[in-house]
């Protein structure tokens, strides 16, 4: 499954980047969401995929009884998901403010620091 998902994640990446490269400023937000999902999946998939073995220790045991999915990339991705939400909120505020102040939605109009 990993090779197939690798191709799919590459596709997500391309979709996200394409949206960020657009000049319409709202598309940048969509691209950002796609890109963060793709980046999280990169970490998750490359660590190796396991079915039905969540990294939990059963009641009464001191260690999992069989191999479990690697918990470390999961911990990394968990915080990454929450942080990408924070970043997205920030980007939304930025886009909203820019639009309100500069009255344009073309990124190419934003080439200088003076408005």
């Amino acid at each position: 499954m990993e090779p197939f998902l690798a191709v799919v994640v590459g596709g997500l990446f391309a979709a996200g980047l394409y949206m960020i490269l657009r000049r319409s400023i709202v598309k940048l937000l969509i691209g950002l969401v796609l890109l963060s999902n793709a980046a999280n999946l990169v970490i998750f998939v490359t660590a190796g995929l396991h079915r039905g073995v969540p990294p939990l220790v059963p009641e009464g045991a001191s260690a999992p009884l069989h191999t479990v999915a690697d918990p470390l990339p999961q911990a990394l991705v968990l915080t990454a998901i929450v942080i990408s939400f924070g970043v997205l909120a920030f980007a939304m505020a930025l886009v909203h403010r820019t639009h309100a102040m500069v009255k344009t939605d073309d990124i190419n109009d934003l080439t200088s620091t003076d408005s």
Binding site: V9, A15, V42
Partner: peptide, 13 residues
């Protein structure tokens, strides 16, 4: 540009 970068990500993975 986007597709070539996506392809690179796949290869990297």
């Amino acid at each position: 540009f986007a597709v070539s970068m996506g392809g690179l990500v796949t290869v990297l993975m």
